[in-house]
């Protein structure tokens, strides 16, 4: 018996969002994230032709090959995906950009580009698959590795870690979230929210490296993550076309955050005193306190759905620049004649 595969609202199956088979290690957190990207794009009924997938260099950055075969992609240079994202989304503002980076790519070589992309609020879902280690070069510490952590070949890490979320917040990020590759539901909900966000959405996802950094003493491991993850909220993403079914009975318990595209994020707080993700100063406190207390908090840390994007600041027309016809790109002959006339007669007009 042939069962018909389920299709989404634009008639595509989940398989239509897949990529090539992964060449990453079995059990790698990055594979799990790739699967959530596939699931989310399918569930949101996104047209793969509207999506672009971008990355830098490293294990994480290989993964765009493993999802969205029907989408264009650009596997850029080490740490330089933000620049490619900035150029591509400026050239065509209709594109939905999903970028995948790693902790070396973002936290070290690309930290400058990362912060400037965030500062410009370039419309991109920027995922950091954070495992605290350089795996392709066989196990050096990355800048997000814990202070005092030990690795087989690298020895003891004597430097404090860079916190990707804190860096993003300090650069005026409009969307900052942290998650854990082992918490696929949360990853999915946050990805949906990130895709609905109009500016840069930074998703710092702890994504264990099963080969080099998955032992229990590592805070970037599955065992540690499963044992210590402290979600801030139960997150439910509600698309713009669905009614909000969760009734807000008691303020402070469930918080509804409206995204730019009209969708909502329902945040059920797990602790009544917990963080309001629209409070920026609170977000700084939360991150720094968690850092000092070695707490592994996950969830939506900060969101400002209204901050202007680079395209808005640039007053770009709606038509993608890349698709403008000649008559919109090349001024007419009369325009050149008039400039020449002004220059030859030496009088400003």
């Amino acid at each position: 018996m042939v069962t018909k595969a389920r299709v989404n609202e634009i008639g595509l199956t989940r398989n239509d969002y897949k990529g090539r088979p992964s060449t990453l290690c079995l059990g790698c957190g990055h594979n799990s994230i790739a699967n959530q990207i596939i699931a989310v794009c399918y569930e949101m009924s996104l047209n793969p032709h509207d999506l672009i997938k971008l990355s830098g260099i490293g294990c994480s950055s290989k993964s765009p090959a493993y999802f969205l075969n029907r989408s264009h992609g650009f596997n850029a240079l080490h740490g330089r995906m933000p620049a490619i994202a900035t150029g591509a989304t400026t050239a065509n503002r209709r594109l939905i950009a999903i970028g995948v980076s790693g902790d070396g790519d973002t936290g070290s070589i690309g930290l400058g580009q990362f912060k400037h992309m965030v500062r410009r609020n370039v419309p991109v879902v920027y995922i950091v698959e954070n495992n605290g280690v350089y795996a392709l070069t066989k196990g050096q510490f990355s800048a997000t590795a814990d202070f005092g952590q030990q690795l087989k070949y690298a020895g003891v890490n004597e430097l404090p870690p860079i916190d990707v979320c804190l860096e993003a917040l300090a650069a005026d990020a409009s969307f900052v979230a942290r998650s854990f590759a082992g918490d696929s539901n949360q990853v999915r909900q946050l990805l949906k929210a990130a895709i609905s966000h109009k500016g840069t959405a930074v998703l710092d996802i702890i994504s264990p490296c099963v080969t080099f950094n998955n032992h229990e003493t590592s805070t970037k491991s599955y065992p540690y993550g499963k044992a210590h993850e402290e979600p801030l909220q139960d997150i439910t993403y509600i698309p713009e076309y669905e009614p909000i079914v969760v009734k807000v009975h008691e303020p402070g318990e469930v918080q509804a955050v409206q995204m730019h595209d009209g969708s909502h994020l329902m945040l059920k707080k797990l602790d009544p005193d917990q963080h309001d993700p629209t409070d920026k100063v609170g977000a700084f406190h939360l991150l720094e306190e968690a850092r000092q207390a070695h707490q592994f908090i996950t969830g939506l840390i900060y969101v400002d759905a209204k901050r202007q994007t680079l395209a808005e600041i640039s007053h770009l027309i709606d038509t993608p620049l890349a698709l403008l016809p000649e008559e919109r790109l090349r001024p007419p002959r009369e325009a050149l004649d008039s400039i020449m006339e002004h220059l030859t007669c030496c009088r400003k007009v």
Binding site: I52, R80, P82, A83, A88, A91, G112, P320
Partner: peptide, 19 residues
């Protein structure tokens, strides 16, 4: 841009996308 690496990266991203 923040530096010339950023500048050329943006230009290449835009050129790839058709601008």
């Amino acid at each position: 841009a923040e530096d010339e690496i950023g500048a050329i990266g943006m230009v290449i991203g835009a050129g790839w996308a058709g601008a």
